[in-house]
Design a protein around this nucleic acid. Sequence first.
DNA 1: CGACGTGTTGATTCCTGTCAATACTCGTGG
DNA 2: CCACGAGTATTGACAGGAATCAACACGTCG
Lengths: 241, 241
Amino acid sequence: MTLELSFSKNCDTCPIRHRAVCATCDKQEMETLESIKYYQTYEAGRTIMWSGDRMEFVASIVSGTATIEHLTEDGRKQTVGLMLPSDFIGRPGREEAVYDVTAVTDVTLCCFRRKQFEHLVQNTPHIAQRMLEMALDELDAARDWMFLLGRKTAREKIASFLMLIARRTTASDLDTATELGIDLPLTRDAMSDYLGLTLETVSRQFSKLKAEGIIQLQGKRRVIIPDLDRLRAEAGDAGQH
Amino acid sequence: MTLELSFSKNCDTCPIRHRAVCATCDKQEMETLESIKYYQTYEAGRTIMWSGDRMEFVASIVSGTATIEHLTEDGRKQTVGLMLPSDFIGRPGREEAVYDVTAVTDVTLCCFRRKQFEHLVQNTPHIAQRMLEMALDELDAARDWMFLLGRKTAREKIASFLMLIARRTTASDLDTATELGIDLPLTRDAMSDYLGLTLETVSRQFSKLKAEGIIQLQGKRRVIIPDLDRLRAEAGDAGQH
DNA sequence: CGACGTGTTGATTCCTGTCAATACTCGTGG
DNA sequence: CCACGAGTATTGACAGGAATCAACACGTCG
């Protein structure tokens, strides 16, 4: 089954035009990109890239959510990256993927054949610099996550995750907003893999936060945050961000 | 007190020349770098960069070990990066440091004033590309560490750490070597911050591994690994790396 | 309706954290 | 020279938070 593309294939009206790897490209560079890009869609649950497989393409996420996961033979799994629209998948200069990438919702990618893209990186300073910028941003995000994984309690992990989703999927300014509703892109199980917990612990913490009125649940996936500051205080960052 | 520089200030004989950010620079680019670089040394325990402070320079580690750490007001600390010779400190394009960087042994840096270096990144493709390569390598390392922090047991964390130090500080080929001796650059306390443990747990696991003959200790800092494969099996990577 | 995927809740275990006492190493100074 | 103290490390007792094992609830789809 093929998903219909619900967006224009034109870069000018692309929803991630100003945030993705192409953000700082000029008119001429955009024409080059436009000529070699192609779109690809994946249904929720599908694997986009297998660890160990040859990487044929790199891509920007146009819509949907994907996870980068690291798993071992004994069945342990850790999600090491949450990829939302405008995030970049794949690594130029590397032949084989080292992590699995999975679509957790329906995902649309703007793809470039890897070899072609590597060529671009070498010849288009704007792209090389944007790649560097994005890599360094991801590195910072990874380091913040290392703190979460190494030092936060289960409760703080959940609160932090909710703040992250609020920050990344909401247009509103989180500093001024008070009440807020968000849709979780992940199942309890996928959250547990991201947070370094079990799904039971995730579920319990959601129940506790709900019982204390810090969050409200509408179904399993929609979360209402009546007081953002109260949730922020539970995230264990002690006045940061 | 000032530390004496125990190395030549000439790039040609620099111990990290072929691995650092300058690895792929040509003769002319090296001359530019050579003209703006300056060396700086820090005693063990000194802070190289404070979170929140303005970043005046970026630098390559020439010798010694430094840690990047994230700490909260309530006293929790997580080391989010272990920096060894050839690693790069600082982020071009950012005004303020977001992490503390601490010298855990005496450290010598090859520094570049940040503004100058940013200019270089924009005008020297070899440097921009090398920066990208190193950033992506660090991102991979950070992701592997996320797995360690989120999913490994205390015992596996220690074994993994010892393998990491063996890999990064030994000239020998770890695939063929069997017995190996390494010097730990970190105290038990610093290791606990890196591994997301307490220092007591680190100490206990060392004692256990020692009692089982998987490692031998000479003093507190020197570790002999009689059988690398045996230690590798304890690292919990199940046939990876 | 029943099966399956997903989520919740309970009982129990156990690994690691916490609190505490003690040892070891290395300088310093009386 | 030895006592002393600071920093570092080891070990023990105990507590607690999250994992594990298990039962059950909810919603959807065939």
